[in-house]
Amino acid sequence: MTETLLDIKDVVVEYPPKGFRAKPFKAIKGVSLDIRPGETVGLVGESGSGKTTLGRSVLGLAPVTGGSIKYRGQEISNATRAQRRELSHEIQVVFQDPYTSLNPSMTIEQILTEPLTVRKMERQAANKRVAELLDQVRLPHDAAHRLPREFSGGQRQRVAIARALALDPKLIVCDEPVSALDLSTQARVMELFIEIQERTGVAYLFISHDLAVVRHLSHRVAVMYHGEIVEWGDGGQVTSAPEHPYTQRLLMAAPIPDPDRQAKHRADRLRLLGIQREQDVQAGFA
């Protein structure tokens, strides 16, 4: 048994050019990352950093033009439709927006049985499975016959998690799954993620712009900036005492919810920016 579940090596993602004569857009410029079974790897970055694209490339939803993505040693970066169908038992997804990730005209039951139909599960077994899944995400059984619009954002996100769990995957790519939620809902959904992981041993690639969310959930953390990973390592260390200047800036930018500590934090941030600017200038002269 290998220790690595997912092995991403020097992955490049390029989108074909939009216009005539335009250059292809390079969203990811050679990124390496690995995930172990049962582990949460946090992926932090700001908008345009390529974090979502990296997640989509693992799911086969982004064009990988270089490097390799191996799942349990098997190359999956350019998997065929049939291989993808096999992989659907292994890798699943939870998206950010609970309003567009569920088809508004399908009932919760139809949404949850969709992945099961690929497995050709019998109707009775499927119904039983839906009930189990609803239990797992703490939704009542009568939710099965309702439409997504009858649910709040947090409840919808629970449905999306249940859908991801339907095929007992070993890895779930979570693309900002709590960003659209209210503070208290966010906390509850995050507890649900941890609880499910501890029970089932599923691994997460957890993508977020929020350093605090990632720190709370992740064993290891990678920081992305302009399509590259600039820092990668133990979650506590990366999110508390980062080494890369960008991660430092990111950490200092997030305000602390305490007026007095934030005042000090603010001053520290300005000092850090001053030092970094000076270093840049020196580097420029060197």
Partner: peptide, 30 residues
């Protein structure tokens, strides 16, 4: 502002403050 952060009385305010993640410990290695 300091009274709200340090001495919140209403259960809802407390619930909100408890949901804040900034001060939670990192999860640690697997």
């Amino acid at each position: 502002v300091r009274a709200i952060f340090n001495d919140a009385k209403h259960p809802y305010t407390r619930k909100l403050l408890e949901a804040i993640l900034e001060d939670t410990a990192p999860r640690g290695p697997l």
